[in-house]
């Protein structure tokens, strides 16, 4: 699936055995987006000419030249991936520590907002700390994990208390949708002004 990172578009995929990997979203052969590719076993294959890549990014097979064992130097740039607590993290560069763990919280859903973080904070009436926005709505706490995609768009992951029952989860989801609407209104107003 396609994803965004500060280093540009990313092809995020999960192999047959369940391992997640993140590639720069451009095939080194002739530039097709790898996020349109297909997973076969432990490899991701480009949809255009079928070049396939291992999780480490090295090319394993060039179907037009089946006799060739591609050298290790033919490769796609990779990003580090951490897969934990129901959230997949990618990092640009080599971070010193692993991603944060949110003890006691469970991820509920993700949504994209056509609004920047500032508009979102204004709508929520509170500020995010280290990418996590602690939002209380109708006495219920919802945590919003924010990944900015440029200035005017945000990917928001909704987390709830892991003991929440289905009704509470639905309510949290609705609250997040309402917040998205409010933030997008503010963002649009900002542009109109």
């Amino acid at each position: 699936m396609p994803a965004q990172s500060p280093a540009g578009p990313v092809a995020l995929w999960r192999s047959r055995s369940g391992r997640a990997a993140a590639f720069a979203d451009r095939c080194p052969h002739r530039g097709m987006r790898l996020s349109h590719g297909f997973v076969r076993g432990e490899t991701l294959a480009c949809i255009y000419h079928g070049w396939s890549y291992a999780k480490a990014g090295n090319c394993l097979r060039i179907p037009a030249h089946p006799a060739l064992a591609p050298p290790d130097t033919i490769r796609v740039a990779t990003l580090r991936v951490e897969d934990g607590g129901g959230i997949i993290w990618i990092s640009v560069g080599e971070p010193a520590a692993g991603p944060p763990r949110f003890e006691g919280l469970a991820p509920l859903r993700s949504m994209v907002l056509e609004a920047g973080i500032v508009a979102l904070e204004a709508a929520a009436g509170t500020k995010a700390a280290e990418g996590l926005l602690d939002y209380t709505h109708d006495d219920r706490a919802v945590w919003l994990l924010l990944a900015p995609e440029g200035q005017a768009r945000t990917l928001m992951h909704v987390l709830v208390d892991e003991d929440s029952n289905p009704d509470e989860r639905i309510a949290a989801s609705r609250a997040a949708e309402a917040l998205r609407g409010a933030a997008e209104d503010i963002a649009r107003g900002g542009i109109a002004r």
């Binding site: 052969h29 000419h49 037009a64 030249h65």
Partner: peptide, 9 residues
């Protein structure tokens, strides 16, 4: 320079 053409190309 950013691509890898082969004989098929």
């Amino acid at each position: 320079g950013m691509e890898i053409p082969t004989r098929a190309d």
